[in-house]
C-alpha cells in the first residue's frame, strides 16, 4: 500500500491525471454550456467519436495536426447544430434526440473510417502531438514537469476553464445563455433571442466536444479505434451534474475523475494481480455513479433544462 502511495506523489502520476482530465474537461465544459442554455446533449458520446475520427482522418491525410483539430472542432460544432435543430428549433425530446445523435454519429464514424482506411489488421496511426515544455515554468519542481511539460491541447484546456467562467458569468452573451436556461419567457420579454442563444450555446458545446475527440485520437492514442471514447462522453454528463453546472467545479470534477482513473491504472500495473483488471476499469464508473448519488440531492439544474421553448405557447 505504501508503494502505491509513493507512486501517487510521483511527477508521472500528476502528469497522467492532467492528461486524462484534458478531454474530460473539454467535454464537460461543452456539455455545461449546452445545459446552461437549457439543452441536455446526450449526443456527446457520438459527437466525440465522430470528431475523433474526422480529426484523425484530416491529420492523417494532410499531415497537419492542427488542421485535424480544426476539422474535429468543426465536426463537433456541426453535430451540435444538428442536435439544436432537433431539440431547439423543432422542440423534440432532448433525451431521445441525444441518443439518436449518438447512434447517428457513431455509425457515421465507423462507416466513414472503414470506407477511407479499409479493414486493416493494425489500425493506422499518426505521429500525434508532442509535449511542449513551457520555458521557465516547466523548471518548477514537481509542478513544472507535471503541468507545464504537456501537449499544447492540455494548455488550451487549462486556459479554457477560466475563459469559460468569464464568458458565462462576465459577458452579455453568457448572461443570455444563463437567462434562456433559467427562464426563457423572461429572456424573451427582455429581448434575448431564446432560439438563437440556445443554438449558439449548443454549437459552442459541440465544438468543445470536438476538441475532446481531437485530443483522444491525436494526442492520447494517436489512432482512431472504435473504443477511443468508451464512455467518456457519458462520464462528462455526470461530471456536469457533479460540478453543479459551474465551469470551475466541473473542471474540478474532471480532475477528480482523472485522479480515480489514473489511480486505477496504477493499481492495475502495481502487481495487485489477483484482482481482475476489469475491476479497476469499473472503478471510475462506479465512483461517478456514487458521486452523483451523493451530489444530486442538492444539485439544482438550470430550471428550463429539457424544456423546449415555443413563443406562441403562453
Amino acid at each position: 500500500m505504501s508503494a502505491l502511495f509513493e507512486q501517487i506523489l510521483q511527477v508521472g502520476f500528476l502528469a497522467a491525471i492532467i492528461r486524462i482530465a484534458t478531454p474530460l474537461a473539454f467535454a464537460t465544459l461543452g456539455e455545461m454550456f449546452s445545459e446552461r442554455a437549457g439543452v441536455l446533449n446526450l449526443g456527446i458520446e457520438g459527437i466525440m467519436l465522430l470528431s475523433a475520427m474526422t480529426g484523425f482522418t484530416a491529420a492523417s491525410l494532410s499531415g497537419s495536426l492542427w488542421l485535424g483539430v480544426l476539422v474535429a472542432v468543426l465536426t463537433g460544432a456541426l453535430m451540435g447544430a444538428l442536435h439544436a435543430l432537433f431539440t431547439v428549433a423543432l422542440g423534440l425530446s432532448q433525451h431521445v434526440c441525444g441518443i439518436g445523435v449518438t447512434l447517428f454519429c457513431s455509425g457515421l464514424a465507423y462507416f466513414l473510417y472503414r470506407l477511407i482506411f479499409g479493414q486493416q489488421s493494425v489500425p493506422p496511426n499518426i505521429k500525434g502531438f508532442q509535449t511542449l515544455p513551457i520555458p521557465v515554468l516547466s523548471d518548477i519542481p514537481v509542478l513544472g514537469p507535471a503541468v507545464f511539460n504537456q501537449f499544447s491541447l492540455v494548455y488550451m484546456a487549462i486556459i479554457a476553464i477560466p475563459l469559460a467562467a468569464f464568458v458565462l458569468y462576465r459577458t452579455p452573451w453568457g448572461l443570455s445563455v444563463r437567462m434562456v436556461g433559467e427562464n426563457p419567457r423572461a429572456a424573451d420579454s427582455a429581448g434575448v433571442g431564446v432560439i438563437a442563444t440556445r443554438f449558439q450555446a449548443v454549437i459552442l458545446g459541440g465544438a468543445l466536444m470536438g476538441l475532446a475527440g481531437a485530443f483522444l485520437s491525436m494526442a492520447q492514442f494517436n489512432a482512431f479505434t472504435f473504443g477511443v471514447v468508451s464512455g467518456r462522453g457519458w462520464v462528462a454528463i455526470a461530471l456536469v451534474v457533479f460540478g453543479r453546472w459551474d465551469p470551475w467545479r466541473s473542471a474540478g470534477a474532471a480532475l477528480l475523475f482523472a485522479f480515480v482513473d489514473a489511480l486505477q491504472l496504477r493499481m492495475q500495473a502495481s502487481g495487485l494481480g489477483h484482482i481482475p483488471y476489469e475491476a479497476f476499469l469499473m472503478l471510475p464508473f462506479i465512483f461517478t455513479i456514487v458521486a452523483m448519488a451523493v451530489m444530486s440531492r442538492n444539485a439544482v439544474a438550470p430550471s428550463a433544462l429539457l424544456k423546449p421553448f415555443r413563443r406562441e405557447e403562453r
Binding site: 447517428f104 465507423y110 470506407l115
Partner: peptide
C-alpha cells in the same frame, strides 16, 4: 461497409422523431 446499418439506425430514430 456494413456499418451502414448503424447509420440507418441512428437516422431512422431521428427521422421518426
Amino acid at each position: 461497409p456494413a456499418f451502414l446499418s448503424d447509420v440507418i439506425q441512428g437516422t431512422a430514430l431521428l427521422a421518426m422523431l
